[in-house]
Amino acid sequence: MASTLRPRPSELDEEAFVATYGDVYEHSPWVAREAYRQGLTPVEDDPEALAAAMAAVLREAAAEDQMAVIRAHPDLAGKAALGGTLTEDSGREQAGAGLDQCTPEELERFQALNRAYRERFGMPFVMAVKGFHRRDILTAFETRLANDADEERRTAVEQVNRIARLRLRARAG
């Protein structure tokens, strides 16, 4: 194993596991709980393996449960970001993409796209923004607005899973 999570997921009881890793999916500790209940071995002490186990839980969940996880995410450069109420992970991720440095025009564009996206899909636009510049994110926003609802839900689930994987990698150092 290249890296190991500390504490080791396979050595934790359910309560400790959910307390430690339940926040990897934004305000959705049930994903961690279900991953734990499906069984963890020392293999899942690796961040990539744990991310895969947790991603499978979300992928296999009912569409309404997937939507609840997606809806738990904040808008990019939205009210929570502007009001300083993002989770620590979300704040760091959005700042890393420069969303805290938007020009007034970019901020206006984000807000318009957030509104259009929510109207079309009934959920926030979710994108794992690490490694992307805010201009890339605006382009992705515009592209994904053309998706149909099922395709976009599946895309958002994969983006949520990517966010979780990146968060687990960061915890492993």
Rank of each mutant, 00 (worst) to 15 (best):
V43G: 10
G122L: 07
L99K: 02
V31K: 13
A170L: 13
E152R: 07
L107Y: 03
R115F: 13
R109W: 00
R115M: 12
A55H: 14
E108R: 11
A80C: 01
T85D: 09
Y21M: 07
S3P: 13
D75S: 04
M54Q: 11
Y117M: 04
A156I: 05
P104R: 00
S10A: 05
K79Y: 03
A97R: 08
D75V: 01
L58S: 09
I70R: 01
P104S: 02
G91N: 04
Y36E: 00
A56K: 14
V57Y: 09
G131H: 07
Y117R: 09
E48Y: 10
L82K: 14
C102G: 05
F141N: 02
F132M: 07
A56V: 14
S10N: 08
L86G: 10
V126H: 11
A112M: 05
V69P: 06
V129S: 01
A156C: 02
E26P: 00
E106L: 11
A172Y: 07
S3Y: 09
L145W: 08
R37M: 03
S28M: 12
Q159S: 02
F132H: 10
F17E: 02
L58R: 03
Q38R: 15
A97Q: 05
S3L: 15
Y117L: 02
Q94I: 08
A170Y: 15
D45P: 06
L82I: 05
L99F: 11
R8S: 09
N147A: 08
Y25F: 12
R71Y: 15
A77E: 07
F17C: 11
V126Y: 14
L40I: 10
A112W: 00
G98C: 05
Q94R: 06
Y25A: 03
A52G: 09
G96Y: 05
E105P: 00
F125E: 03
H73M: 09
W30S: 08
I70N: 05
Y25V: 01
K130D: 02
A32N: 01
E142C: 14
G173M: 01
F141D: 03
R37W: 06
G173F: 01
V57S: 04
P47V: 11
F141Q: 01
V69M: 11
I163V: 07
A19M: 11
L40P: 12
A112Y: 02
L58G: 07
L40V: 04
E88N: 00
S10K: 13
E11H: 09
D148E: 09
R6K: 13
G91K: 07
R115Y: 15
A156R: 01
N147C: 12
A55K: 11
E15R: 15
Q101V: 01
E105W: 09
P104T: 00
E142F: 13
V43K: 15
A146W: 10
P47W: 08
R115T: 13
R33C: 07
V129Q: 02
E15K: 14
E60G: 11
Q66R: 12
I70M: 05
H73T: 03
G78W: 11
H27R: 09
E119C: 03
I137R: 03
